[in-house]
């Protein structure tokens, strides 16, 4: 029986880091799934994580999101930007010892077509005005995804104990 859901690589930070990169992603899977537990040192409660692929920071990313904060739901979008963003990431103003939980799914990552991306990110801190967000992303690139870069706004850093897991899923 094929091993369908396989850990490709993981990184649990022992010290803070400005970025986390998964490089040399093998082309032998059908889909990619990133599972993240993270927080950064920016002095906000609800911040954002950024994602690029293949070190490509041209304006090939766009997204539409739906979010709730415990009292209201809303939706917004961003076309033609240099990274996928609006992915929930708790900052240093959030309740101590809380981390964002995020899943990012990239289907058909080696197909020579644009890449749809599904993101589900949640912040729960036993406080009001917190974020839960689902994000439909699109990457206007037909290149296979061989690397994924996860970064912060400006010079902020992921704090230690943030963890990042990249899985590959095979359909055969």
């Amino acid at each position: 029986m094929a091993n369908t859901y396989t850990l490709i690589s993981s990184n649990t930070l022992s010290t803070s880091a400005a970025s986390v990169t998964f490089s040399s992603i093998p082309a032998t899977f059908t889909d990619l799934v990133l599972r993240i537990s993270a927080r950064n040192d920016r002095a906000v409660t609800n911040g954002t994580l950024r994602l690029t692929i293949n070190a490509n920071s041209s304006s090939i990313y766009s997204f539409t999101f739906l979010q709730g904060n415990g009292s209201a739901a809303s939706s917004n979008r961003s076309p033609a930007i240099t990274h996928l963003t609006d992915i929930p990431l708790l900052g240093s103003s959030a309740t101590n010892n809380t981390f964002s939980s995020i899943e990012i799914y990239i289907p058909s990552y080696t197909a020579s077509q644009k890449k749809p991306v599904s993101v589900f990110g949640v912040n729960e801190t036993n406080a009001t005005a917190i974020e839960m967000k689902v994000n439909a992303g699109l990457i206007d690139s037909t290149a296979a995804v061989s690397s994924i870069e996860l970064t912060n706004v400006s010079t902020f850093q992921f704090i230690s104990e943030s963890s990042f897991f990249l899985y590959g899923i095979k359909n055969s």
């Binding site: 539409t64 033609a80 994000n135």
Partner: peptide
């Protein structure tokens, strides 16, 4: 079910 359908300046997202 989950739907992701961004179209770069338009789109929809479902749960």
């Amino acid at each position: 079910a989950e739907l992701s359908n961004d179209r770069n300046s338009a789109g929809s997202v479902y749960r």
